[in-house]
Amino acid sequence: MRIVALAIALAMLPTAAHAWGGTAHSVIDRAAIEAIPDDGPIFLRKHVDYIAASASLPDSWRGDSENFSKIEEDPNHGWFREQFTFLKPIPRSRYEFVIALYKHYEAIKDSDPATAARTNVRWTGTLPYAAIEAYDRLVVCMRYVRKARAEGGDVSVPEQHCAFQAIRLGHYIGDGAQPMHDSIHSDGWRGDNPRGVTTDRSVHGRFESQFVDGMKLTVADIAPRIGAPSHRSGDMFEAVLAFLDEAGDKVGTVYTLEKRNGFADFADKDVRAMVYERTAAGAAMLRDMLCRAWAESASPPAKISPSPLDFTNPRFNPETGSAPD
């Protein structure tokens, strides 16, 4: 009953069309958890109803009336990569990224005020940082699950902590799977438009909410498309960036599909295929990150010496007061 009450409460909250609709987020989270192999964090299966019902929770932290929360949370849902092509490699610190944006803003504000107006944290986004931060917290929570098991203690609380972090991670990965979250063309095409695609801001919601709801997307639709588990070996931050690039490369296709019939035909096979492919990609990435976090949690925290806060650390950045990962 508590899960039902939570779902009803979330449904009553004010919403805005700035993320995959509730249907897609819920389907992505549920599909990812159902696809966890038996050597993964299968304890999340018992929390799948709570996670799926809460899949859109991070969007509720973006209301205009809660502006402290909004200012912090809004950028976490986008990655408008055309805005920071000048920045290579991408910093491995949220604050180094923000500082780099501001320095570029200062450098171009007089010569190119239009570009400068969007060279800031809100109009570039911080999605990969939000995702990797949730991932790190998930690893920590999972260590406590393992500790409680080893000591014969109560695992319910650390498992619930993991479920909450899975909600956060799932939302950001779900957003990142949607091409419009990874491009300046998030709400209508911006700038040069030789193909004459729509500049209507409603295109975002018409694709990810209206069409997804109209086609009645389900877990069964994407489960066969998720593929075999992969623990995503290598650097996880780089894997997230690559995942966002893959999605962002498809934004032009989304606009081409919209030009045909404005997403009005819920039986359109090509648009349905795009939704299936992108939600399945999000579910696969989320499943793999959950499994990778579980595997990492089997090891104790790495000993970092000198500390990231130590001025003698060779990577210490005095502008942020710490060394990046």
Results as ranks from 00 to 15, higher is better:
Arg2Val: 15
Ile3Tyr: 05
Ala5Pro: 02
Leu10Ala: 14
His18Arg: 15
Trp20Cys: 09
Ser26His: 07
Asp29Val: 03
Asp29Tyr: 02
Arg30Gln: 12
Glu34Asp: 14
Ile36Arg: 08
Asp38Asn: 11
Arg45Ala: 03
Val48Met: 11
Val48Tyr: 07
Tyr50Ser: 12
Ile51Gly: 03
Leu57Lys: 04
Asp64Trp: 08
Asn67Trp: 15
Ile71Tyr: 05
Ile71Ala: 14
Glu73Pro: 05
Asp74Thr: 06
Gln83Gly: 15
Thr85Trp: 09
Phe86Pro: 01
Phe86Ile: 10
Pro89Gly: 04
Arg92Cys: 02
Ser93Asn: 12
Tyr95Leu: 15
Glu96Ile: 02
Phe97Val: 08
Phe97Met: 03
Val98Asp: 00
Lys103Asp: 14
His104Tyr: 15
Glu106Gly: 05
Glu106Ser: 15
Ala107Asp: 14
Ile108Phe: 06
Lys109Trp: 02
Asp110Thr: 09
Ser111Cys: 11
Ser111Val: 12
Ser111Trp: 01
Thr115Tyr: 11
Ala117Cys: 06
Arg118Ser: 11
Arg122Glu: 13
Thr124Ser: 08
Tyr129Asp: 11
Ala130Tyr: 05
Cys141Trp: 01
Cys141Glu: 12
Met142Ile: 04
Met142Val: 06
Glu151Trp: 01
Glu151Ala: 13
Gly152Arg: 09
Gly152His: 07
Gly153Trp: 01
Ser156His: 07
Phe164Asp: 13
Ile167Val: 15
Ile167Ser: 00
Tyr172Ser: 15
Ala177Lys: 08
Ser183Lys: 05
Gly188Asn: 12
Gly188Pro: 00
Arg190Ser: 09
Gly191Ile: 11
Asp192Asn: 06
Asn193Arg: 11
Arg195Pro: 00
Thr199His: 01
Ser202Asp: 10
Val203Gly: 03
Arg206Val: 00
Ser209Val: 12
Asp221Ser: 10
Ser230Gly: 08
Asp235Ile: 01
Glu238Cys: 04
Glu238Val: 08
Ala239His: 05
Ala239Thr: 13
Asp245Gln: 13
Ala247His: 02
Gly248Leu: 10
Asp249Gly: 13
Asp249Ser: 15
Lys250Asp: 10
Tyr255Cys: 05
Tyr255Thr: 04
Thr256Arg: 10
Thr256Ile: 11
Lys259Asn: 09
Gly262Arg: 15
Asp265His: 11
Phe266Asn: 04
Phe266Trp: 03
Lys269Gly: 14
Asp270Asn: 10
Tyr276Ala: 01
Arg278Cys: 06
Ala281Lys: 06
Ala283Ile: 10
Met285Arg: 04
Met289His: 07
Trp294Thr: 00
Trp294Asp: 02
Ala295Tyr: 14
Ser297His: 15
Pro300Gln: 12
Pro301Gly: 03
Ala302Pro: 02
Ile304Thr: 11
Pro308Lys: 07
Leu309Cys: 01
Asn317Pro: 08
Glu319Cys: 05
Gly321Asn: 09
